[in-house]
Design a binder for these strands. Structure first.
Lengths: 121, 121, 121, 121
DNA sequence: GTGGTCTAGACCACG
DNA sequence: GTGGTCTAGACCACG
């Protein structure tokens, strides 16, 4: 899996890494149990400080997306926590985006189609 | 319209204000042409510096959501710009949220129902 | 001559009035010696405070575009001061606009054509 | 690149900074990809508050002239947005300046020569 | 070390 | 009375 960093984004680099790995797991590009690159490997690959990559991995671990052990490094978790709900932060963000979409004049059907496409891939 | 600031959020205060006003316009709580509170009034009401409120208003102005004149203060814009599309930042955020929703085990139908509720109100 | 005020513009109202009268004189819509509406007439016509209109007239007088006397009110000056040069403020503004035009990728020929059109009318 | 502030100008300081940087980019004095001074460096150099300089940089960022990242500070953008047109505000300003130039008795040829000189450097 | 955020307080032009 | 501008000074996250 290729991780692309936009160094000019407002989103911190560790968060960009975290987000792309979550999206990789969600899309199936990263399979359950699959090994992630080591912190050192990934940091040299994308030309970023190891601390930054490490921070991304720690967040993913805290959130329950990956597991780490000293022997095998980091892996995608096999039995993901299925809360069947989205957290409050995401809910607030979603409300904001829906509000802005509405004001842009887009129809709810077009908006839902966009969601379906995102869900599909 | 009541604006609530979460001082522990990592979303900057001026952005929280901006977001809540956009959501207020979108929901209809703030009507087209309606007068917003003055910078001073809002800043004392929510206990925030005038500069911070002013920054929120300037962003809303730049984005085309409100208009300001020196006599009457700020108003919700009458003829909103209808791009009929969502910008790239919101699209990326939406992709991230959809990915996380999928991983939580929520069904696409439940997710779409949540969108409909948000759209409705 | 019809004066249109944009109450949401960053340009102060008295300056909008001043600018439109100057442009009216330049285009020939207002002829040399022609009578301008009285401060009172213009202020009620466009729904603006008399002080604001008065300020515009005073600037036009100071700049030498109009003359006022107690009998006849304000008139467009017959013998305009022909400095055959543009002042430093306008020069600086022009430099800024030229710089931005260049950066926009427009060609100097298209830019000069635009100038010619503006000059023509 | 040297930035000079006129504290008596009615153009706000942050706008003077913004304008001079845009003109620097346009003239080539600031090259694509070139590093701008840090907010702190520039603010101490010209004796202006960091907030004011920061505001100038944020406008330049919003307008797409520069990019900022947290590591390296601000840089001139490599791939500039080429709209190949000038915005309405600049068009209105240009009309006003052309009107005043005409009234000054300057010839259109001299005016166009002035534009060419500004364009050239 | 960098930009980003925020405050308290002040002054200003406009209308 | 309104928004706009500016300062001095502080703290923060990021890397």
């Amino acid at each position: 899996m290729i991780i692309k960093i936009n160094e000019y984004s407002d989103i911190p680099i560790y968060m960009q890494i975290r987000n792309q790995i979550v999206m990789g797991i969600s899309s199936g590009e990263l399979e359950a149990g699959e090994q992630l690159p080591t912190v050192r490997a990934l940091s040299t690959e994308i030309g970023i400080n190891t601390m930054t990559v490490s921070k991304a991995y720690q967040i993913l671990k805290t959130e329950g997306y990956i597991l780490t052990d000293r022997k095998n490094g980091a892996r995608v978790r096999m039995e993901m926590n299925r809360s069947k709900s989205i957290n409050n932060e995401n809910k607030d963000e979603l409300k904001r985006i829906v509000s802005e979409a509405k004001l842009s004049g887009i129809s709810i059907n077009d908006f839902k189609k966009m969601i379906e496409e995102m869900w599909g891939k």
